[in-house]
Amino acid sequence: MEHFTPLPSLLGGMLIGLSASMLLLCDGKIAGISGILGGIIQPITHDTLWRIVFVAGLLSGGFLFQLFAPEVFTFGLERSTGALILAGLFVGFGTRLGNGCTSGHGVCGISRLSVRSIVATVTFMATGILTVFVINHLVGGAL
């Protein structure tokens, strides 16, 4: 537990909650990132521009940190290109099939006490834990 960062993580989480609340209060939208991206890939008239602007905000926030604190982007895992491609495909396809990710189900859905979101969150946590167990303890930490 030598890298345990409870206070920055709690603060970061509260900012995420604040962001989701702002998007709901102002625009009436759910801050689910996979759903927002999915709506750009499968556009519906008059429901696309806010998504692009939100993603531009995400990227702008990223650029701020790249300028002033680039260490927050340390990758730190040993993964081959093939493993990264497989991971990206699973995340992209899985979040669209399951209608959400860590933000849409894990934060917004659980805050609404949605049964679907609670079940989804327990499921992706479980398979995430299982996957890391296999990688770190059965195949030696790199893939």
Partner: peptide, 12 residues
Amino acid sequence: GAALFGVGWGLG
């Protein structure tokens, strides 16, 4: 979908 996402999350 959630199960698949979790595998990708752990992997990447």
